[in-house]
Design a binder for these strands. Structure first.
Lengths: 258, 258
DNA sequence: AATTATTTAGTAAAAATTACTAAATAATAG
DNA sequence: CTATTATTTAGTAATTTTTACTAAATAATT
């Protein structure tokens, strides 16, 4: 949504193209060099920070809608995307606080309380993980800011988004041991130390420097290359790639890592 | 919903009391004497079997709405209830097949395609487990049948409910090892053999007759009583009860069983 | 050529799991 | 009243998995 005309059409006719009363919110985790960040945005008409989110087109599957949202924000397609919980407490959005004047000042549009936008909304939470250094953050006509925050220095979020982040992080950390991860977060060729660091950062735990890479290898998803990486005056580590086929199969059937 | 008048009000004014476009469906698992069953219903205007479900009141939290639904069907309150997934494929309900005449014959009401009921709906899936021998099944004005089916002899279900059952069963079997279960499924006082059989049936696996009860005990949720149960010409097993406090704590914080 | 920090193979110790054995038991049959 | 019986349950041995630790291999730099 880039132009004011598009936005006006969205406000007045959105209920014809989107499913009313239902939205989705995305906790997009970003990893890079042992840092874990979260993508947050600011809406024009809302003071604080929020998770990026949006509505679901009437022609879309849920995961397609989530993918569209993530792509619009980060420029990256086909991330690992997982539903983690649906949120529907009647007071979750505190829309009673909706102020017509604030909206008008922010958007230049008069939206009344009977608009399809101003009604109770149940929101489906998804999480995604990507390499934040590869993303190109995008704002749109309704968004003033869009930025990465360190996971340990998050501001207080609007609505129930604090709880969403808590749940998303929890689900991500559980699923870390039941799905293969790495695509989009590592270079195509990587060392065991690099993927080890990725798991340490995402899980928030120290993982044994010798044993954990062995466990990773035992999953059978990694292929050892003949190439090595030069890292200075030390033994050069081997490079690995994912065995695409086995990785895809593991995404479907799950894996068990301890 | 028991009277035609209530039903008419629901059809014409339901959108004022319920959140439109969103429903929930419940996979209610029933256990008794090593049998695992699933509760299914038949709607007046739909030919095949479905999961019981309904709409969410604008004043309700999601889990409250699910609880109301389960209680209305089984007569049992406060079951262990878990969200497992939200379903929103645009073609999930195939409502294009809606036939005004069929509806009129079944309900005595003329519902047109612009009714709030006849529009794309996203559905939140919950599962519950109870002792099916303790339930009192209820139909209402829209439901012609309500019955328990053996989990291995399920009929083909309407809409996407086959997939819902598959996902619910999968989530239930994973969560079996991360939440305490037993309340509502066992008598207040039970033997280790009885709870062992419960876990075998729910998980669908054989669990070692000597080791598994030891693992259960190791969770620290069971209190051994001085009483025993008479079971014929054999050694009498001890009776156990749940330590309510520890059980509640485990529901909140989770447990790990292998 | 020596130094260096890291990778990585290997193994020993500890813990957890699984498999198995057998004693304890209490109603029933004879 | 005793032998029989099938089940419960304590105990332990065998196996596997996990964790902790050691040290060799390595390659750019000094």
């Amino acid at each position: 949504m880039k132009t004011q005309a598009e936005f006006e059409d969205f406000v007045h006719n959105g209920h014809l193209h989107y499913v009313p009363h239902v939205s989705l919110d995305c906790a997009i985790f970003g990893y890079h060099e042992q840092q874990l960040k979260l993508l947050l945005i600011k809406h024009k008409a809302i003071n604080g920070w929020c998770l990026p989110g949006g509505y679901i087109k009437r022609t879309e599957k849920l995961v397609e809608a989530a993918n569209r949202n993530v792509k619009e924000r980060t420029g990256i397609d086909n991330l690992f995307l997982q539903q983690f919980k649906t949120f529907g407490d009647p007071d979750r959005a505190r829309l009673a606080e909706f102020d017509e004047e604030v909206w008008f000042k922010a958007t230049g549009l008069r939206i009344t309380k009977d608009s399809w936008l101003i009604d109770q909304t149940i929101s489906i939470g998804f999480y995604a993980i990507t390499d934040f250094s590869k993303t190109v953050l995008q704002t749109d006509i309704m968004t003033t800011k869009c930025a990465w925050f360190d996971i340990n220095e998050l501001p207080k979020l609007e609505f129930d988004h604090d709880e969403m982040v808590k749940e998303a992080l929890h689900t991500m950390r559980v699923q870390l041991y039941h799905y293969p991860i790495g695509y989009n977060m590592l270079p195509e060729k990587f060392t065991l130390t690099e993927i080890h660091a990725l798991y340490e950062t995402l899980s928030g735990k120290k993982l044994d420097v010798s044993n954990f890479p062995k466990k990773l290898m035992a999953l059978g998803l990694l292929k050892k290359l003949d190439e090595k990486r030069s890292i200075g005056p030390h033994r050069s580590p081997h490079l690995y790639i994912f065995d695409k086929e086995k990785y895809e199969a593991a995404l479907k059937n799950g894996v068990v890592l301890s």
